[in-house]
């Protein structure tokens, strides 16, 4: 009996181990593949061409700067839009709303999270693009701003559900303690509950940014994809081309191993590094918090 049990244990442990290690392996393989295909670009394409402001690959112009700044512009604006809405909604659902509204809102947010981004892009083209053109009196509604709004919409459900979970795990004692000290409901939320859920809310924000950074389809449909170097405050209301949209729309046509192919992979590496940085920041913040918690428990 005992040896049989042991075999089962060993088996399950090793299966779990394999699963765990395989994810590391996959990430590693993806990185190796990206590096193998993308790094030659640094050798084959003159750096002066790469760090230029003109992207027109079919004529050998591989200036990636407008793409990088386009991505940053859209992602940062989307985050600025999604942050207050997402956290506000999370606070509303978790702290303020009466139970019946909570029970309606939560599934709605989940449905919003499940809408494919192509569908949102379609709505974007048909509704949001014309609306912004008329409302803001722009030459065209296909702008970075439209993309940012749409990305914000895509990132909000992620932020809401993770932030709401974080707020829910705050012990009710905190709220009661805040209230019992004569703080108002809002003072308790801002002064006690939100700070207590800080780590989780930060994770929510990082995941939201990651979602916005990686989104392709919706952005490709509404930002106009013009590789213009953003300059000045007005750039948000002009068309931009993001890194993801560039890879998605051009990867299909390129000949394997060509310069264009290598540069697209280089863009992939840059995206990988960007999301890596975001993840490192997120985990650095949460481990810092965890260390503090461990000190208290000991």
């Amino acid at each position: 009996m005992a040896p049989k049990k042991q075999i089962g244990n060993v088996l399950i442990t090793s299966i779990i181990k394999v699963c765990g290690y395989s994810s590391i392996l996959f990430v590693g393989l993806i990185l190796v593949f990206l590096l193998k295909e993308g790094l030659p670009a640094l050798k084959d394409v003159p750096l002066i061409t790469l760090f230029n402001i003109r992207w027109y690959p079919i004529e050998g112009l591989f200036g990636i700067l407008p793409l990088i700044f386009g991505t940053l512009l859209v992602t940062i604006s989307a985050t600025l839009i999604a942050l207050p809405f997402g956290i506000g909604t999370a606070i509303f659902i978790s702290e303020v709303a009466p139970r019946w509204i909570k029970e309606i809102l939560k599934p709605i947010v989940e449905i919003l999270a499940g809408i494919p981004s192509v569908v949102l892009g379609f709505i974007g083209i048909l509704v949001i693009v014309p609306f912004f053109r008329k409302f803001l009196d722009l030459p065209t509604g296909l702008t970075a701003f439209t993309g940012a709004v749409l990305l914000g919409l895509i990132a909000i459900p992620t932020i809401v559900s993770v932030a709401e979970d974080a707020l829910n795990t705050v012990p009710p004692g905190y709220r009661q303690a805040g209230l019992a000290l004569g703080a108002t409901r809002w003072q308790t939320i801002w002064g006690v509950t939100v700070p207590a859920a800080k780590t989780g809310i930060l994770t929510a924000v990082m995941l939201g940014i990651g979602r916005a950074l990686g989104e392709t389809m919706a952005v490709m449909m509404v930002t106009g994809n013009a590789p213009v170097m953003p300059s000045g405050l007005n750039a948000i209301f002009e068309p931009v081309r993001t890194m993801t949209a560039t890879i998605a729309s051009e990867m299909g046509e390129v000949a394997t191993g060509s310069q264009h192919y290598q540069v697209l992979f280089l863009i992939g590496i840059l995206l990988f590094l960007l999301s890596l940085v975001i993840n490192i920041i997120a985990s650095a913040v949460s481990t810092k918090q965890r260390k503090r918690a461990e000190r208290i428990l000991s």
Binding site: Y174, Q176, A177, L179, A180, L181, K198
Partner: peptide
Amino acid sequence: RRKIGMVFSRPVPLP
């Protein structure tokens, strides 16, 4: 609530 303070069963320092 400012006139009637309360202490709970588990210590709950605010964060």
